[in-house]
Every structure is written in C-alpha cells, then in structure tokens.
C-alpha cells in the first residue's frame, strides 16, 4: 500500500536527553490504510519517536508532516491520536465519558467544563465509536471495571472520537494476554483496512508484527536499520535485540552491571 500518499511523514528526527542521543536522524512514512510496526530493543527510540509526533516530547531537529501540513514541535496534532501500553483511561469515569474526552480538543470550555456539559451530538458520536470497537453495551460502566483488553479498545474508541487520521500505538498489547492482544491487533488492522487510518504501532512481539502489519521498521540506536514488508527474516529481527542480549548475558556470567545496557 506504499503507493498511497504518506499521511504521516517523519524526516530527520533528532532527540537527545542530556548526553544520551535517543533519535539520530530517524525518517519514515506511514500511508493511509497501512499498518506499520516498529521493532527494536529498549532505548532504540521507538516510543520517543511516537511521543515527538503527538507533541509529548519536543524534537531537537527534524520535521513531522501530517496530511501535508507541518506539525508544530511540542504541540498536539488534532489528526493524530495515540494509545498507550498503560492505556491511561480515567478509571473512575464511565466508559462513555472516557470516549467523549477524545473530543475535548474541538470543544470550548463552556461545553466541556464537566461531563454534564458534553453536548448530545458528542455523546452520540462517542457511542458510535464505542460501537465500532464492539463495546457500546458497556457505555455506562466505570472504565476501571473493564478487562485490560476491553480498556485498550475503549482507548481506541477515544482516539476515534478525536476523529484521528493517524493512530499511533505505543506497545498497545504488552500488558494484555494473548487472546486480548489478538483482538486489539485485529481492531487496529481493521481500522486501517476499512476506515483508512494510518496506523503505526510499537511492538515487542515480532510474530504479531509479521501477521498484522504491511511493513516492519527495525530501529537501533535511534536510526532505521531496515524498512521492509512483513516478510522479515528472523535474523534481521534477532540483530535488533543482539546488543542488549549480549549485555544481559555478560552481566549474568560476570556478575558486574554495565551502564551501557540500554
């Protein structure tokens, strides 16, 4: 599907935390209708790159374009939504109120100072988004009462209520059991196929990445080391994790901790 125009385009992204360079000129594109997986060891810059796109981190250099428009560094982009490993719903609020919160960016304070002020059309739209993820019947339950997989689908519904064109997922299934993981990944796949979203997901499971994505990006040391269709060799994946595994192995054998682990 790479013949589509890139909906999300990242060009020469750089980011350092103090002395440590996390992103070292990272570039990649995600097209509408495409699922792209990001693989790499801890500290390879996967999450940081996504956080730069949505404005949670301010990149030191590089440009981010969404639908042809350059994003302002450090600011949220209305067309880009994100789901997180720890899901980050408000557990005491109802499922429906959590989904409505996705619309906050386009609501003035007079229509959003409290959940009681949410307009009916926003609540109706949130119900439609909940229906899309198959949880419309749980709308009035407290979000904290749902299972992990259901909560992650509510988070996806919140992203849909934001009317996002690009959905970033930061380890969306790392905290979920295999069945729930499968469900969430199927949902992400279907959002790309049927709704034309551009989906970029950080994953730690190479087999999930192979089965559900159109392309796999391998990251190491804040750079792209491969960008290929879902048929990635085992060796290429193993290479991504090799330095970390070797460091762990040497720690286990000598009993000395190394600071260069990450």
């Amino acid at each position: 599907m790479s013949e589509h125009a890139a909906t999300l385009s990242i060009e020469g992204l750089r980011k350092a935390f103090g002395e440590k360079t996390v992103l070292d000129g990272l570039s990649f594109q995600v097209a509408s209708g495409e699922v792209v997986s990001l693989l790499g060891a801890n500290g390879s810059g996967k999450s940081t790159s996504l956080r730069c796109v949505v404005g949670l981190e301010r990149p030191d250099a590089g440009t981010i374009t969404v639908g042809g428009v350059t994003a302002k560094p450090g600011e949220a982009v209305p067309e880009v939504a994100m789901v997180f490993q720890k899901i980050h719903l408000v557990p005491r609020r109802s499922v429906l109120d959590n989904v409505c919160a996705g619309a906050l960016g386009r609501l003035g304070l007079s229509r959003s100072w409290s959940v009681l002020a949410f307009p009916r059309e926003v609540q109706a739209e949130a119900m439609a988004c909940l229906d899309r993820v198959g949880l419309a019947d749980r709308a009035r339950e407290k979000a904290g009462r749902l299972s992990g997989g259901q909560q992650q689908r509510v988070a996806v519904a919140r992203a849909l209520c934001q009317r996002a064109k690009v959905l970033l997922a930061d380890e969306p299934v790392s905290a979920l059991d295999p069945a729930a993981s499968e469900q969430v990944m199927n949902l992400l796949r279907s959002l790309a196929d049927d709704d034309g979203l551009a989906v970029a997901a950080v994953l730690h499971q190479p087999d999930l990445a192979r089965r559900f994505s159109d392309r796999i990006l391998g990251l190491a040391g804040g750079r792209l080391v491969f960008d290929s269709s879902a048929e990635v060799t085992d060796e290429a994946v193993a290479d991504l994790y090799r330095p970390a595994l070797e460091a762990a192995a040497s720690m286990a054998s000598t009993g000395t901790a190394t600071k260069e682990f990450a």
Binding site: P78, M82, F84, L89, V90, L104, L109, S112, A155
Partner: peptide
C-alpha cells in the same frame, strides 16, 4: 498517564484538570 492522553487529544490544561486530574 491520563493527563498525557488528554493532552494528545488536544485538551487544554483546564480541560485536563476537569477530566483527568480531578476525577
């Protein structure tokens, strides 16, 4: 976490106070 999630959704500081912090 929820504060960050709402910031990504475009919420203002006042909105995230009302919808993420206070609850």
């Amino acid at each position: 976490g929820p504060v960050e999630a709402l910031r990504v959704a475009g919420a203002s500081p006042t909105q995230s106070a009302a919808h993420a912090v206070l609850p």
